[in-house]
Design a protein around this nucleic acid. Sequence first.
DNA 1: GCAAATTTTAAGGCTTCTCTCAGCTTCTTT
DNA 2: AAAGAAGCTGAGAGAAGCCTTAAAATTTGC
Lengths: 225, 225
Amino acid sequence: MRLLIIEDEPGIAGFLKEGLEEEYFAVDTASDGKSGLDLAMTNEYDLLIIDWMLPGLSGIEVCRQVRKSGNQVPVILLTARDTLEDVVFGLDNGANDYIKKPFEFEELLARIRVQLRNRNDGDDSLKAGELMLNPVTHQAFCGNSEIVLTPKEFSLLEYLMRNKAKVCTRSRIIEHVWDIHFDSDTSVIDVYITFLRKKLDAAGCCGLIQTIRGVGYIIREQDNQ
Amino acid sequence: MRLLIIEDEPGIAGFLKEGLEEEYFAVDTASDGKSGLDLAMTNEYDLLIIDWMLPGLSGIEVCRQVRKSGNQVPVILLTARDTLEDVVFGLDNGANDYIKKPFEFEELLARIRVQLRNRNDGDDSLKAGELMLNPVTHQAFCGNSEIVLTPKEFSLLEYLMRNKAKVCTRSRIIEHVWDIHFDSDTSVIDVYITFLRKKLDAAGCCGLIQTIRGVGYIIREQDNQ
DNA sequence: GCAAATTTTAAGGCTTCTCTCAGCTTCTTT
DNA sequence: AAAGAAGCTGAGAGAAGCCTTAAAATTTGC
């Protein structure tokens, strides 16, 4: 999952980046409104974390511009201001959530999870057939037996699961899971798909990841009932 | 927009109901967990507002049950508790947002608006008679049975479907689907039309692709009803 | 600092897809 | 009715894309 942090205080930005990367997010950062907006407009993120007070373009303005372009990416606003008008103003200008500094990292994480799960079922865990992923504990299960995955394997599977029933193109996968923004003729994806399939098959979740030739991969619930 | 408020304190419940009705919401109320859950399960709401502390079933428990049933309706949790664990616990158990008592009505309104605006169930699938094409998942269906198509087959069919009821000339097809911009006396199109017809027929979608001799092809809804 | 685990690269093999070609059928015109 | 034009279809060569494996590079943990 790929996040963008727009925050001018290097301390906070660094702290967030580090913490979120430990949680296996792919994190980009920007230190002012303009460059942040640029990044947000030219790349595809799964979530934006934007500080209200930014040099140049304000966080609200960034948020508004992003929305104006039709982009529905979830936005969490980070702020020291907490008067009623501020909260309402922020939410009405496109933010999905609002968190007041100083905040605890755990709470931010929980709120990020909420925003990311909205696309899916409404339960934190991701399910497809027998397979179940728990993004909080970074565990995968097939039925009751745990499947041990490496971090990259988990990230890839998580991305596929969060986009269950949608095609994940190779370029999106390489962007969201590997955070690579340029063309490259690597075959890491193939290799990791092989890894995953091997482990899933061994655990009993067969045929879950399907290839769409020339496009990418997709996870589809088996339609046998 | 139809809301359900589950709140045991009559004062707060009444205040909310009144205020929200002034905002043109249709509001139902329940004063305990069990009856609230009943209502939520048997009716279709656009949003639930649930107090954490309820007699009988707790708000969290109601929230969890609703989710367990597969219902993705947005939930805002109303609470006096505000320790870190509580927030995280609430969000992780299915709530979409969390608002601390005492709150200002304006803020609640703003948060409701956020939850309600997040829904774009854009079903952009293409249909013609029995045939249904989903460009997002790269799947084609005839009724309920899937038709497996190769990338080129899919592209061609997609192009025809997007121009449903319009004639697609050979030169346009070769431009849009094959990206060939010069005259060429290839017969790929014929071949692929054959492929498609074969697969569509096998699946039960007969006669959908019609030939316009000397011009091209067209997909027409069958006019038998 | 070393060993183990993880990630990445590279290459060969294999499957599947694409497109040409040639013969055939259908349609149109005279 | 015949001849030419346009479209249909099956087979097969070549190409593209994907899978797999092994080994190199990097990171992590002790």
